[in-house]
C-alpha cells in the first residue's frame, strides 16, 4: 500500500465526518464532490501501471463526480430552495456520534470480508463501507430533498471505491454504463425536486407524507 493512497483514504474519512457535521447544503455538495474527485483518482494511484483504459475511466469519473454532479446540484439548490440549511432530523452532534459508530462497524466489516482479489487492502474496504454507510445516514436523516440526492451520491462514491478495490477487470462498457446511470439518476432526481418545489413549494421530504397505508 503506497503512502499517497493512505493519505487519500484518510482524507476521505475526514470528508465523511465533515459531511455529517455540515450545516449548509452548498458546503455538503462541495465536500461530496471533492470526495468523489479523490476516489476517481484511486485507480491511477493503486494500479501498478496506468493503461489507457484506466486513464479514460478515471477522467470520465473525475468529470462526472467532481464536475457535473456538483454543478447540477448547486444549480438546483439555487433554483429551488430559499433556505440553505441542511435541517437534519437528528442533531449534528448526534450525527457525528452515529458516524463514529458507523466507522467502527465499517472497520469490523473491512477486516471480516476476505476478498480473493489482488491489490485490495483493508483500509480501502473500510473507507468504502464507511462512505456507503455515511450516504445511507444522510439519506435517512436529512429533511431537504436536495440533501437526499447528496446522500445518494455519497453512497455512489462509496460503491465506486468498493468497485475499484475489488474488481480488477470489469469491462469498460459496463463501467461507463454505471457512470452514465448515476448521471441520469441525478438528472432525473433534480427534475423531480425542481417540479416539487416549483409547482407545490415543497423542498422538505417530511411534507411528502400524504400517501400512507
Amino acid at each position: 500500500m503506497n503512502h499517497l493512497l493512505e493519505i487519500l483514504l484518510a482524507l476521505s474519512l475526514v470528508f465523511n465526518f465533515v459531511l455529517l457535521g455540515s450545516t449548509r447544503i452548498g458546503a455538503c455538495v462541495i465536500w461530496m464532490a471533492m470526495q468523489g474527485a479523490l476516489y476517481s483518482l484511486v485507480p491511477l494511484i493503486a494500479g501498478e501501471e496506468i493503461t489507457p483504459r484506466i486513464l479514460v475511466l478515471a477522467t470520465a469519473a473525475l468529470a462526472m463526480k467532481g464536475g457535473i454532479f456538483p454543478w447540477l446540484l448547486i444549480r438546483l439548490r439555487r433554483r429551488t430552495s430559499f433556505h440553505f440549511e441542511v435541517e437534519p432530523y437528528i442533531g449534528f452532534i448526534a450525527s457525528l456520534l452515529v458516524g463514529v459508530c458507523l466507522l467502527a462497524a465499517a472497520a469490523t466489516l473491512g477486516q471480516r470480508i476476505h476478498l480473493t482479489a489482488g491489490g485490495y487492502n483493508e483500509g480501502l474496504l473500510t473507507t468504502a463501507f464507511f462512505t456507503i454507510l455515511t450516504g445511507l445516514l444522510l439519506i435517512t436523516t436529512r429533511r431537504k430533498a436536495v440533501m437526499q440526492v447528496v446522500g445518494y451520491l455519497v453512497l455512489e462514491n462509496g460503491i465506486y471505491l468498493f468497485g475499484v478495490g475489488t474488481v480488477v477487470e470489469a469491462p469498460m462498457l459496463v463501467e461507463l454504463g454505471v457512470l452514465l446511470d448515476a448521471f441520469v439518476a441525478v438528472f432525473v432526481m433534480s427534475i423531480a425536486v425542481y417540479n416539487l418545489s416549483r409547482k407545490f413549494e415543497v423542498t422538505d421530504v417530511d411534507k411528502l407524507a400524504e400517501l400512507k397505508g
Binding site: L136, I139, A145, Q148, Y152, L155, A185, V188, M189, A192, V193, N195, L196, K199, F200, V202, V205, L208, A209, E210, L211
Partner: peptide
C-alpha cells in the same frame, strides 16, 4: 403533489 411524492419515493428507494 401526491403523484410527485410517489415518484420521489420510487426514485429514492429503488435507486438505493
Amino acid at each position: 403533489k401526491v403523484s410527485l411524492e410517489a415518484t420521489w419515493k420510487y426514485l429514492m428507494i429503488c435507486s438505493v
